[in-house]
């Protein structure tokens, strides 16, 4: 298992390298950040001076080399617009996004698994059909549209929850989080719900599919024929069977939750990494874009590793594969 983990880490390092190169080339191709950020009063000499000062006049490979040298020394460069190290900016925003994504995943799993089970156990009943119909709503309307609707209904019309922003935070081991205080939690509810909807729909459908398949497996049929209580059949035979797709999806989708928090964070003015990313893309703030991607890739690698380890723990067949 250790060598498996080590090999994965080595592969991941290579991934990071390729990734940084791609981003570098991509941002280089779009344009010069100085053009967007430069003071409108600036003349050509000033534009040239600033471009040179940032090293943006060098050929791409030289810029990349300078970046690599810095990166190996632990310096990913400073944000063009904030003047502070890019990694600081990202880490400052990470807790806000993480708690948003975690709560969203929690909502999706705690609602999605039971609803999916019900829909799978009773596919022909009205409740099963209603759940399925409802789940379709979850992914057919664009996130930004649903987000605004949530704000309109729960904040503007009913006045129950705040419209936007993060609200007060409490320090937990030195990390500012908002879910510990009531006011902070109130700010968290709407964006987390908004972010959760799509994953919720996906989970319901996958759990339903898994349940239906499991119910038709011979061993489940046999167990039912033997007269085992429905609840016990579900717990012993069905649940383990649907766990693997659920973990895969939960793992993969958690990563995409973080990446796609962009829209929710934009609509709810949530100061997370996603909003930072979209702002940085808009300004071609390359150090921040690269640092963001490095952080997300690292998160993904960790999540994938955790998913694979869980697989191995749950399914002996995959364990054999992992050790190969």
């Amino acid at each position: 298992m250790l060598s498996f983990t080590l090999r994965r880490l080595a592969q991941s390092a290579a991934t990071l390298l390729v990734m940084s190169l791609l981003v570098f080339a991509g941002v280089y191709a779009i344009g010069n950040p100085v053009d967007i950020l430069v003071n409108p009063q600036a003349d050509q000499a000033e534009i040239a001076r600033v471009t040179a000062q940032l090293g943006l006049d060098l050929p791409l490979w030289q810029q990349y080399w300078i970046f690599l040298r810095g990166a190996f020394g632990g310096d990913l460069g400073s944000s063009f617009v904030a003047g502070v190290p890019a990694i600081t900016l990202i880490l400052e925003r990470l807790p806000a996004t993480l708690e948003l994504a975690l709560l969203a995943m929690l909502i999706a799993v705690t609602l999605g698994v039971p609803l999916g089970l019900i829909a799978g156990l009773k596919p022909e009943s009205w409740i099963g059909r209603a759940i399925m119909a409802g789940s379709i709503l979850g992914f057919s309307l664009p996130t930004f549209w649903v987000g605004l609707m949530l704000i309109l209904v729960f904040s503007v019309q009913l006045g129950w929850l705040p419209t936007t922003g993060r609200g007060p935070t409490t320090d937990l081991f030195g990390i500012p989080v908002s879910f510990l205080g009531w006011e902070g939690l109130r700010h968290l509810i709407l964006p987390a719900t908004n972010l959760a909807l799509f994953k919720l729909a996906l989970l319901i459908r996958l759990v339903r599919a898994g349940t239906r398949e499991a119910m038709l497996q011979d061993y489940v049929r046999y167990a039912r024929a033997k007269g085992l209580a429905g609840r016990r059949v579900v717990r012993v035979h069905v649940l383990p069977n649907i766990l693997i797709p659920v973990i895969t999806v939960a793992g993969l989708e958690f990563g995409s939750l973080i990446a796609f928090a962009v829209v929710t964070e934009t609509v709810f003015a949530w100061p997370g990494m996603g909003k930072l990313l979209i702002d940085s893309i808009g300004l071609l703030d390359r150090p921040v874009i690269v640092a963001y991607l490095l952080v997300t890739v690292c998160l993904f690698i960790l999540i994938n590793l955790a998913v694979d380890l869980l697989y191995a723990a749950l399914d002996p067949r995959v364990r054999a594969e992992g050790a190969r």
Binding site: V34, L37, V38, N39, A42, E46, V50, L54, F80, G83
Partner: peptide, 13 residues
């Protein structure tokens, strides 16, 4: 100030 692409240098040029 170094490393700012949109600084105030133009106003004091």
């Amino acid at each position: 100030i170094r490393g700012s692409p949109g600084g105030f240098a133009s106003y004091v040029r």
